[in-house]
Design a protein around this nucleic acid. Structure first.
Lengths: 121, 121
DNA sequence: TGAAGCAACTCTGTAAAACAGAGCAACTAT
DNA sequence: ATAGTTGCTCTGTTTTACAGAGTTGCTTCA
């Protein structure tokens, strides 16, 4: 068995880096929702059907730590917490839109249904 | 507390669809590696450090089922199995490259290191 | 020749992550 | 007063990824 041009092939480091964020369940969708402007935690929860509180909270924290998302607290009362995209997140939006276009042209909508079925389980 | 324009906000269905594939750990990286041309299972394994055989096998099957990847068997001997991108996968490549560019401009490389640390655990 | 190595996976127990749902403090609305 | 909402936290359960071993069929090496 001849090892040839495959031998030194490695996944591109920048793509790996991108998917450190985007390859985690729910992140892409959360970011997309935030792309439409500052939003409260509960509204994100409603906008992303199927996500749990525990995961949403954890993801928002991670995204803020990574510099994609900004968490702003209006002390109130009532306390209002808003999440919005930071510059890095904003720059991702055109790509997310293109990914949506690609998906609608190339993927079977039943795929999303299977995800939703999982979510409703 | 006033519910206003947030009320009807929902995650875009096409983005959800895209992330049915891309939001699963390892898929983005596998697809990127396949983007450089047909490749054997073992070569994919080496190209994506940290992935397990069980997950790689499962992902390749899922990607083939979704129509992004083609599995071709050269009966041999020795049997050679090659994976390559189908049309839908090929159309995704420019977006993956852009995601890599975005990541290198906007994400902390330490993020990838944390993923690799997990992988070497 | 037999042993070692490689390809392409499969199998299985363990650890980690996501799920599902309950709960809490601080508020607002009825 | 009760009920509802916000923004989470907590916890037991289920699912998924991890880690490593294993199998068959081949090729390579001593």
């Amino acid at each position: 068995m001849q090892l040839d041009e495959h031998e030194g092939r490695m996944c591109d480091a920048t793509v790996s880096l991108a998917f450190a964020i985007l390859g985690k369940p729910w992140n892409g969708m959360i970011l997309e929702v935030l792309g439409n402007g500052a939003i409260t935690y509960s509204a994100v929860r409603r906008a992303v059907p199927g996500i749990s509180d525990a995961v949403l909270s954890s993801r928002l924290t991670d995204l803020a730590d990574a510099g994609l998302v900004t968490r702003e607290v209006d002390a109130g009362p009532p306390t209002i917490v808003r999440y919005s995209l930071a510059k890095a997140g904003i720059e991702l939006m055109p790509l997310l839109r293109q990914l949506g276009s690609w998906a609608s042209s190339n993927l079977d909508p039943a795929l999303a249904a299977s995800v939703r079925a999982n979510a409703s389980r």
